[in-house]
C-alpha cells in the first residue's frame, strides 16, 4: 500500500509520453545526429512560417524531418540536403538566407539605414547649434527691444 502514491505518480507522468508523438531516429553516428539537428533548426516550416522544422509539429514539418533523416542515412551531406530543399521551396526555406545579389538589401539594409540615421542626426544637431549662435542680438536690436519695453502700452492692462 505504501507504493500506491509512487505508482499513481508514474501513471500520471506516463501520460506525457502518450500525448506527444515522439519520433525516434536511429543515427549511424553522433556527427550525423548533429548534422540532423543543425539542419532541422535551419530549415523553415512552411506551414507555420516562424518556426523551424525541428520545432514544429505540423505534418509537413514531420515529413520534412523524415526526408532530412532519410537523406542523411543515404549519405547526403548538409549542403546537398540544403540545396535539395532550396531547389524546391526557394531561399525562403532557409532561416539563414545566403549573401548574394537578391538578398543584399536584406543583409546590408539595416546598416545603410543606421548610417543614414547618424548622418541626419549630426546634421540636425549642427543646425540647432548654428541657430543658437544666431540668437545673440546686436546692439541695434537691443535698443529696439528696450524701447519697446519702455513704451507705455496703449492697450489697457488692467484686468
Amino acid at each position: 500500500m505504501k507504493r500506491l502514491p509512487l505508482i499513481l505518480l508514474l501513471g500520471i507522468l506516463s501520460f506525457g509520453a502518450l500525448a506527444t508523438n515522439i519520433e525516434v531516429y536511429d543515427f549511424d553516428n553522433p556527427a550525423q545526429e548533429r548534422t540532423y539537428k543543425e539542419l532541422t533548426a535551419e530549415l523553415r516550416c512552411l506551414v507555420c512560417q516562424n518556426q523551424d522544422i525541428a520545432d514544429s509539429n505540423a505534418e509537413l514539418a514531420q515529413d520534412m524531418r523524415h526526408k532530412v533523416f532519410s537523406m542523411l542515412k543515404n549519405g547526403k551531406n548538409k549542403q546537398e540536403i540544403t540545396d535539395f530543399m532550396v531547389e524546391r521551396y526557394g531561399d525562403f526555406v532557409r532561416y539563414r538566407p545566403p549573401f548574394e545579389g537578391k538578398t543584399l538589401v536584406l543583409w546590408i539594409g539595416p546598416f545603410v539605414i543606421f548610417v543614414l540615421a547618424v548622418i541626419f542626426m549630426l546634421r540636425a544637431i549642427r543646425r540647432a547649434r548654428q541657430q543658437e549662435e544666431h540668437r545673440e542680438l546686436n546692439t541695434e536690436q537691443i535698443t529696439q527691444a528696450a524701447d519697446l519695453l519702455e513704451q507705455p502700452s496703449d492697450k489697457s492692462t488692467d484686468r
Binding site: 509537413l60 520534412m64 523524415h66 524546391r88
Partner: peptide, 13 residues
C-alpha cells in the same frame, strides 16, 4: 500519405 511527392514538388499547402 508521407509527402513523398509533395516535398519533391515543393508543395506546402
Amino acid at each position: 500519405p508521407d509527402s513523398t511527392a509533395a516535398i519533391d514538388w515543393g508543395v506546402y499547402g
